[in-house]
Amino acid sequence: MAERSIHGVTNYLDLLGRRTVSAVEEAGYVMALLGEAVFWIFAGPFIKQPVRVPAIFTQMMTIGIGAAPIVFILSFAVGIMLSIQGIATLKTFGAQEQVVMGIALAETREFGALITGILVAGRSGSALAARIGTMQVNQEIDALRVMGINPVRYLVAPALLAMLVMMPTLTFFADLAGLLGGAIYCALELHLGYTAFWDRTTDILVVGDVMQGIYKSFVFAMIIALVGVTNGFAVTGGAEGVGRATTRSVVLSISYIVIADMLFTYFLNR
């Protein structure tokens, strides 16, 4: 019995060690990939292998413009939710009118970026992993390399750049949509005019509040792009592997986004 339990412990330690090594390995790979992408973005034009601008715009269309309607709907709904909860809570103190402050701060500092991050991770992070994974399976990545087209320059750099431009843009758009949702609900529930809502919001908010969300969105953009491409390149084992990579990239990027958000919020509000 004792021998078996020792065996179990060593097995567990063995597994723990292997997991740790592979996690460190993956982190190193992600950093190398980021480094290489940055290299191509800045040094590419000088060695006649620039990152193609049309490819960046194509990615910006799918990542950003394509996501705008759903970002609007979700943020609008979150804005309404915040005002319902806010009014219900503040009613106990008879301070319903203060709900505007809650909506404005929560939306710009937190929910605009978070909702956009989760949505883009699910929509574009997964698409990135699936696209690169399929290309890996079909030897398209090998084909690019033998044609002398660096896959990081051709596939990763445009996606990363597009993500870094579109995430903050979408986040700002989400802020506005959330505030609109809040304004409409407050108008119906508290008979607070739109102008009054807007005036109070602009009184409360400082640039720093909006920027808090924007800073986060840059970090989320990096997380989504890098997790997506890393999982895409790591695909082995055909169509099933592509499915696994897609799922993994969504789960991981949403988890990293939420954790990064928590850390950011802690440090930015001290």
Partner: peptide, 26 residues
């Protein structure tokens, strides 16, 4: 160097013509 892979490995997001032009373009 030119390579014809087993499955062709054409980029599925581009037309046949764009695929053939790709090395020239790059």
């Amino acid at each position: 160097m030119g390579v014809a892979f087993q499955g062709g490995a054409l980029l599925s997001s581009m037309t046949v013509g764009e695929n053939v032009q790709l090395p020239l373009r790059e």
